[in-house]
Amino acid sequence: MTETRSKSPAIGKLFGSTKITWILLFIAMVSLTLSVGYYKKSLNAEGATVELEWPKSTAKAVVLDLADQGVAKQLVQPDKVRAKISYSNKGDNPIADLQVQTGELSTISQITANSSAFDKQTGTLNQLLNPGNKLSLTLSIDLPPGASDAHEVYAGELRFVGTEKSTSYGTVSIRIINSRLPATDPGKENRSNQSDTGSEHRGGHNH
């Protein structure tokens, strides 16, 4: 460190007055932060957010497009995608033994929750999900090498079940595509888009 450290900041009296400089820097930073917010908003489609509300809406579909990834993501970690799932109990009774089954995604995905009562190895919530409560889940998918070299990258389903009574508490179908590459069979793509299970979300807000 040198003696220069002991001087006032160089951009201290840029406009003749320290106060004016202070105010201008402050306003510039507020504006920059808001711009950063818009930048982040533009990247929302990098991940997806789905909300399930038992028993009202129990089936949702998500499409994650790798082409929506930002430059930084594409450069550093393009093969790891994420979906955030919020599962709310809007019913009158508590949900016991809720388990999230990743099915065919199990070998390449990991699911975590905002609750320490959630066992991520088995995907089981080891406590009641009481009426009005919400379980926030994050599904991270590691795409196998070369998987993103096709238009249709991966498809799978997340199932919410009651382990004891084998009750279905909802499903989220997840489809990963790479729209930079052409679809090999457009007819097939159209058919798979016609989801009969519920609304489809393409990308979406990530927290």
């Binding site: 220069t4 450290r5 001087k7 900041p9 160089a10 951009i11 201290g12 400089t21 202070w22 105010i23 820097l25 402050f26 306003i27 510039a28 930073m29 507020v30 504006s31 920059l32 932060t33 808001l34 950063v36 917010g37 818009y38 982040k40 908003k41 929302n44 807000h205 927290h207």
Partner: peptide, 27 residues
């Protein structure tokens, strides 16, 4: 710190951070 006063930047970021949810979503 010698080049630029961190205080207006710091508080500017704080205010911007607090305002973003109303405009562009939380950061």
């Amino acid at each position: 710190h010698q080049e630029i006063n961190p205080v207006p930047i710091r508080y500017g970021f704080l205010v911007g951070f607090a305002l973003t949810p109303f405009f562009a979503g939380s950061i």
